[in-house]
Design a protein around this nucleic acid. Sequence first.
DNA 1: TTAGGGTTAG
Length: 486
Amino acid sequence: MLSLYNRIPSCSHRNFPKLPAYGLTTVPSPPQEDATIACLVLETDPQILASTLEKHTVQWTPELVNKVLKRLWNHGPKALQFFKLLDRHPTYTHSPAAFDHAVDIAARMRDYKTLWTLVARMRTRQLGPSPKTFAIITERYAAAGKPDRAVKIFLSMHEHGCQQNLNSFNTIIDVLCKSKRVEKAYSLLKVFRGRFRADTVSYNIIANGFCLIKRTPKALEVLKEMVERGLTPTLTTYNIMLKGFFRAGQIKEAWEFFLRMKRRKCEIDVVTYTTVVHGFGVAGEVKKAQKVFNEMVGAGVLPSVATYNALIQVLCKKDSVENAILVFEEMVRKGYVPNLTTYNVVIRGLCHAGEMDRAMEFMGRMKDDECEPNVQTYNVVIRYFCDDGEIEKGLEVFDKMGSGDCLPNLDTYNILISAMFVRKKSDDLLVAGKLLIEMVDRGYLPRKFTFNRVLNGLLLTGNQGFAKEILRLQSKCGRLPRQFRL
DNA sequence: TTAGGGTTAG
């Protein structure tokens, strides 16, 4: 596989001006095979990808394919092309997990035709679709603003050879709740609670749904109903309510609820404590958050990485990033391994304090700790560079993402395109146009607002030719303002 | 991937 890697000198394939390196210099580690292949797929012209892949003898395994698909996550069209090519491979056959990945990607691009073709193919090959497949599909439909469609799909699962049960029922009501369609989920529960024998989990999901939209009284009502039906609340139920009070800004109620939980001797756990530490912190009560954090060890409950993350975030937001970093160092000393969230919280804190250099240092440190920055990490840094007017540095960090290690997502493009308007420079508008083309190419659909903004910008700076190109793109995407529609 | 705690701006 080394030869394959050697063929690809660089994965940087954008036409933006090269800028001096800034802070992201780390010792290059040997490339993983999946990274190499992802890179190759990104680099190669779609027309010749099939023959290019054939030329290289790769030992395709489900694990390798899944890793590559994960790397191509934010480039839907390439990911699906790769999936389709391997689907015709003479010896390798896709695993159910690979199909689920492909289904998820197609659904995210709202390519529903491909989605259902894949589902049918899974069925023919007796690889599914599984309850997990339907969890993915219904979640995407709900997120795309089609909750009714999601419900219909759930109700027709059995027609695809996948029987509904209590688990899949709980999944669909959770999907509805997480997309804020709580009333719809609640009605569904009322209709089907007999058929599926709704349990504590079902009611916890609905209560949590009402908490998510800050309707704690309604959540309490749901729990009352649950008890009346002979179901016993669990610690999860109480943790849901506790978090709900904090989220709704009912700090006093949250505190009293927490005290009652302790008094009732229900074995409160690390989740309870993390909720309280975070809740008080976000409400600005840092001292109280710290006190609870210190108290938990005495109570025989060890903090988790998530608890540390909560405290660190709270210190960043309401105290100082210096104190947050002290806690960070302390957790490392105690043998905890900071995770992606820990780093992202610290990096955001540093960026917010204007300490961009130190933020970049931490980004290097996380790489050394084999905790690769993710798209959120990059987005935070890019956003703050741009907000500081350091647009070149923002673009430079963006350019580092191109390698297939971490592809930009919709947020990344939106952040950068917005930044291209602050300096009122003609060149910036050209970059905005290129970014717009690139994001469409990668399966992202820009908002009408974004198109129009870039178009106006290009016209005002005398880039009529380029503007026309963007206009054609916009019409292809079906995002043309009414007066221009063909 | 049947439910609860850490990342998403001010």
